[in-house]
Design a protein around this nucleic acid. Structure first.
Length: 277
DNA sequence: CCGACAACCTGTGAGC
DNA sequence: TGCTCACAGGTTGTCG
């Protein structure tokens, strides 16, 4: 489920309950997700105190000082907090798709991931140099991501703007939903070759991307208070989409029917009138 | 460099 | 009601 906003909402939801707490145990209920779970490395992080939780792209990084636990939620992953029974046992036994319990003092962080595209890795040394992180592009909420940056990085790019926006080697965190939504709001046709978009349009697009992501984070943030009792989902689903998933429904702006096309094996939703070339 | 495509998995919903 | 098939919010790797 998660694009950048949901990962960020998750980070904000779990951080206050876990930072400064000692990891009492780590229980893995599967041998592997996308990659093998760090069964044998467990001794390196169990017993350590969690110093911080940061996010890079859609990766969460749990900093234990001696190394980082990297968590990716894949397409169907979610994290939630459970109160512990007797301070060292989660109050609810793991269900079918629960794969990891990080048992802290008083609170357990549980990873559920039905499709098992997620990942949990133990990284020591410079996390930025890890192959999964080293080649990641700019954070869309970084002030350095502006129209000039985008212009420079799309120069000569013939790929259509929609798949170009989703390429994490350029900009991270823009998944299928927010690529369609941002282009709709910026009135840019998703098939336009990325390098051919005018600077004026890029100046419109960049703040729209930031606003769209921030609005989604804010929507999720409104349910943060209940994170510990929730199912791990957020206000994310309550977003009112303009284009995403609305094939055949009238455009909220002009009334024309929203269309869908395939781009790079992913469905793109757009309004042929509002997003004419 | 680019695009197309398969792969990793399971659940869900549309259509018959 | 029950079956089959296409598809799903991500990312990597291979091939042409």
């Amino acid at each position: 489920m998660p694009e950048l906003p949901e990962v960020e909402v998750t980070r904000r939801g779990i951080a206050p309950a876990l930072i400064g707490r000692r990891l009492a145990s780590a229980d893995f209920y599967a041998p592997t997700l996308r990659y093998p779970l760090p069964h044998t490395a467990r001794t390196e992080f169990v017993g350590q105190t969690l110093i911080n939780i940061t996010r890079r792209a859609k990766y969460l990084l749990l900093d234990f000082g001696v190394g980082h636990l990297l968590i990716h939620l894949g397409m169907s992953g979610s994290l939630r907090l459970l109160p512990n029974e007797k301070s060292d046992t989660p109050s609810t036994p793991p269900q079918k798709h629960d794969h990891v319990d990080l048992v802290f003092e008083n609170t357990t962080l549980r990873l559920r991931d039905p499709r098992r595209f997620g990942a949990v890795l133990w990284l020591t040394g410079d996390v930025c140099k890890h192959p999964l992180l080293a080649k990641l592009g700019i954070e869309p909420l970084d002030p350095a991501f502006d129209a000039l940056w985008l212009k420079n990085h799309l120069k000569g790019v013939k790929t259509a703007i929609k798949p170009a926006l989703m390429d994490g080697h350029r900009i991270v965190g823009i998944g299928n939903i927010y690529a369609s939504e941002s282009l709709f709001r910026a009135r840019i046709n998703p098939r336009t070759p990325a390098g051919k978009i005018s600077f004026a349009r890029l100046q419109r697009l960049v703040p729209i991307i930031k606003e769209t992501l921030l609005a989604a984070i804010a929507a999720g943030g409104s349910s943060l208070r209940d994170f510990i009792h929730s199912d791990g989902s957020s206000g994310y689903f309550q977003q009112q989409y303009f284009a995403y998933g609305r094939t055949g429904e009238p455009c909220r702006i002009c009334g024309q029917l929203i269309r869908e096309i395939k781009q790079a094996q992913r469905t793109t939703f757009y309004c042929a009138t509002c997003q004419a070339r």
